[in-house]
């Protein structure tokens, strides 16, 4: 099941995003696994000189059921989101929240250290921090 458009926003910021995406699309060739929008959980990816940071917005999940794997610089986040079923005589007026199994895959840069991974779940956000290999970090070279 596809997750309905993640978090629709007001028209102006939506146009803004469209413009940004078109610019990016013209300059960058997309990754082979693509950057799928509209999947669950929504993901933000960023990086510092020392680490790669992944934020997965997966509210209402028991962290013990989350499955995070790294294999050859491909990160997979999988799990299942179970929602309380409505009572027998209840009427569902709005049904937008994602339910069911999910799996998202992210390609990581080459310089990460797959043994130095940390994952935390707080306020419904899974944060995965992967350290970059020490020898890949920029070093200052002293001039003699």
């Amino acid at each position: 099941m596809m997750y309905r458009s993640l978090f629709p926003r007001d028209v102006l910021s939506e146009l803004d995003r469209l413009q940004r995406e078109m610019q990016q699309g013209l300059h960058l060739s997309p990754s082979i696994r693509g950057i799928a929008r509209g999947g669950f959980p929504a993901m933000n990816v960023g990086g510092t000189a020392k680490s790669v940071e992944i934020y997965a917005f997966a509210p209402g999940i028991d962290p013990a059921t989350l499955d995070v794997q790294i294999e050859k610089s491909v990160l997979t986040v999988a799990g299942e989101r179970r929602l309380e079923p409505p009572g027998e005589k209840a009427t569902v007026h709005i049904d937008e929240r994602f339910a069911g199994r999910f799996r998202r895959v992210v390609t990581l840069p080459d310089d990460i250290d797959p043994n130095a991974v940390e994952a935390k779940y707080r306020d419904g956000v899974l944060r995965i921090t992967i350290a970059r290999k020490a020898d890949a970090q920029p070093r200052r070279i002293t001039i003699q």
Binding site: F57, P59, A90, T91, V92, E96, R97, V125
Partner: peptide, 21 residues
């Protein structure tokens, strides 16, 4: 706009909203 579920039964309305983070 956070995704929501709105369910109504005899006693009232239950609203769930996803506000991750």
């Amino acid at each position: 706009l956070p995704p929501v579920d709105v369910i109504e039964d005899a006693s009232g309305i239950t609203l769930y909203a996803d506000l991750a983070g």
